[in-house]
């Protein structure tokens, strides 16, 4: 009976591991969708393909919300990882916020449909690539936090690097934008979109900072 109970415990653990992996996988998928959607918007505007991607990211975010709630409930109900439970919940919640930032950015594009001058398109693309790369490495760092703690810091360094890149591109993009011939309302409108994308990189950095602390706490 004791062994049966233990086997049951491991099977429950396995199911929960799969949910955490799905949560991270969905976030990674969302980052890719975010990048592709912005690329489509920059080239073709808010067409059907773009709207489909906005919808897809919303569905991914919604599924991640459900997964997060399920994981949190199971961690508490089964009193699992008492030492790291708070940290894991904090990590999932802040990762979900990054997810929300990407979703919010795409919704804003879909609703406000800003006109982006051709000359700024490469800058927007570079900024999106840097922000998405930061999120990708954040997902890798989070996965390593669960399975291979020694690799976390390498991925966190990458998150910081891409966030710094995003900051540089943001500054350059804003400078170019405000030196352009656009009227002030157009400049301010586009500025808010630069910030939407940069916020994703900043959000990834905030989670990375927390994850760095959680990793130190998990040292045996």
């Amino acid at each position: 009976m004791f062994m049966k109970k233990k086997i049951a415990l491991f099977s429950r653990t396995k199911a929960l591991e799969a949910e955490i992996e799905e949560f991270l996988g969905k976030l990674s998928q969302s980052a890719l969708t975010f990048q592709t959607a912005i690329s489509v918007y920059l080239q073709h505007g808010a067409n059907g393909e773009f709207q489909g991607m906005v919808q897809k990211l919303a569905e991914l975010e919604s599924r991640d919300d459900a997964l997060r709630r399920s994981i949190e409930a199971q961690l508490y109900r089964q009193t699992l990882i008492p030492e790291s439970r708070g940290d894991v919940l904090g990590l999932l919640e802040t990762l979900d916020k990054v997810h929300g930032l990407m979703e919010g950015g795409l919704y804003a594009l879909s609703i406000e449909k800003p006109v982006i001058p051709e000359s700024l398109v490469p800058h927007f693309q570079d900024l999106t690539t840097a922000a998405v790369s930061a999120v990708d490495h954040l997902v890798l760092a989070s996965r390593a936090f669960f399975t291979n703690i020694d690799d976390v810091s390498d991925h966190l360094r990458e998150v910081m690097r891409y966030e710094k890149d995003a900051d540089k591109i943001t500054t350059e993009l804003k400078r170019t934008l405000f030196e352009s011939e656009l009227d002030l309302s157009g400049k301010l409108h586009l500025k808010s979109f630069v910030e939407y994308i940069d916020d994703v990189a900043d959000g990834a950095e905030d989670v990375a900072d927390r994850l760095g602390i959680y990793t130190i706490k998990r040292a045996i």
Partner: peptide
């Protein structure tokens, strides 16, 4: 024990949840 256990855990690359279950046992 520390010198044996900690590298073994790292080598096994156990998921945090599985490590928790094994640690309980």
């Amino acid at each position: 024990l520390f010198k044996i256990t900690v590298p073994s855990i790292k080598l096994a690359r156990l998921h945090l949840l599985r490590l928790d279950a094994l640690t309980r046992l």
